[in-house]
Design a protein around this nucleic acid. Structure first.
Lengths: 209, 209
DNA sequence: AAGATCTGGAAGAAACTCGTCCACTTGTCA
DNA sequence: TGACAAGTGGACGAGTTTCTTCCAGATCTT
């Protein structure tokens, strides 16, 4: 339902998209409680415009989630279909999702509430998790992914990568996510050098149940 | 200078320490702009007490940094002296620092300013970085750490681990940092499965220069 | 037990956010 | 091209949140 009933004017459509991107980035970096004005600014738009398109903060959060899950679902499906090995699919999914700034710094319960209560979001979320479960299983079967991890672990690693890294010079900042991600992926490779502490984290360990 | 001129009364001393710990945790989780009252609450103390001990937020930030760098420096020195291999030292340092909730979600420039302007903090920071540089070099020499990483990379991985993970059930939350850290360490092991993108990040890439 | 030290939290002042409203711009279509 | 519906930015009043001070009473120390 990213498309409204009456088609938007071209410029409005563009602005709406910019807002969603800006909000997604900011949510990932700083959480969902950031002043609306900052989101507007990053989207190069006035607050007025923001509110015209999204009734209130909750509507914006909901839209961001739908939009993001949609993108991730599409990308994941494509990766599963096109990549030769499950490992390649996994790499691609992780990379792409990091790039998409998936994840929200969930410091308030507001976010959880939205995800839980919005049916469309839940549906897409489940779809994504189903696919991820499959990738993990297949990658482990093919012997490329260490056996002692679960989807939950991937999700967590993920979140770690995405939460925008600060305190690095602007120059280096561009390198960080890719490098951190690559190191993590290397750490996920089978055969594993050792045993991980604890137990594999599954989707049941993720919130928004 | 964690100790004041006139020794504090025992209870006051205890409270002060609790405040520092609470602040460090909260800063790592949510950044340095959290309401003073929350810090006070987590330290089981009234706001009044907090202000009596630290004139204002800046003083608190400064104290947290000194305290933290001090602890890390001590731990690092000990690790270097006691562990058999550089790799073991590195493991220990990383684990310990994660445990210490090193790192601050630096979303404001306030933090950078404090670290830059406080001489004692800078001094300790340099000392820690010197030691880390040595650990990295030695670990690479002994062939346990992949060659294409630098201190900067370690710092970044670190920050990724520490920033408190959300959106995981309380039960699983305890496992996450240890697992993420372990996976990362496995990813750092030599021989590396592949080349990392970009270039090794050095201390020059870290901010607070 | 006296007296210095320390404490919690109420409360006024200051800073921030929200979300609305409207004069002005821009895109669309005949 | 012109007319007008759709869209825009940002100032603003109301409502919150946060900062910091202050002090009556609790707690140590000697």
């Amino acid at each position: 339902m990213t498309k409204p009933e009456v088609p938007l004017r071209a410029d409005a459509r563009r602005n709406r998209d910019q807002i969603l991107v800006a909000a997604r980035e900011i949510f990932a970096e700083r959480g969902a409680e950031v002043p609306m004005e900052e989101i507007a600014r990053r989207a190069s738009v006035g607050v007025g415009t923001l509110y015209r398109r999204f009734v209130d903060r909750e509507a914006l959060i909901r839209a961001v989630f739908r939009d993001t899950f949609q993108a991730v679902a599409d990308e994941t499906r494509a990766a599963l279909a096109q990549e030769r090995t499950a490992w390649d699919a996994l790499m691609r999914i992780m990379r792409q999702s990091a790039w998409l700034h998936v994840s929200v710094q969930a410091k308030s319960s507001r976010v959880t509430a939205v995800v839980r209560d919005d049916e469309e979001t839940s549906r897409m979320r489940d779809e994504v998790l189903d696919m991820l479960d499959e990738v993990v299983r297949r990658a482990q079967d093919e012997g490329s992914l260490r056996g002692d991890v679960g989807v939950g672990d991937l999700a967590m690693l993920f979140v770690s990568v995405v939460h925008q890294v600060q305190s690095v010079t602007e120059d280096a900042a561009g390198l960080v996510p890719a490098r951190v991600l690559a190191i993590m992926m290397d750490g996920l490779r089978a055969p594993a050098p050792g045993e991980l502490p604890g137990r594999p984290l599954t989707r049941g360990d993720l919130e928004f149940p």
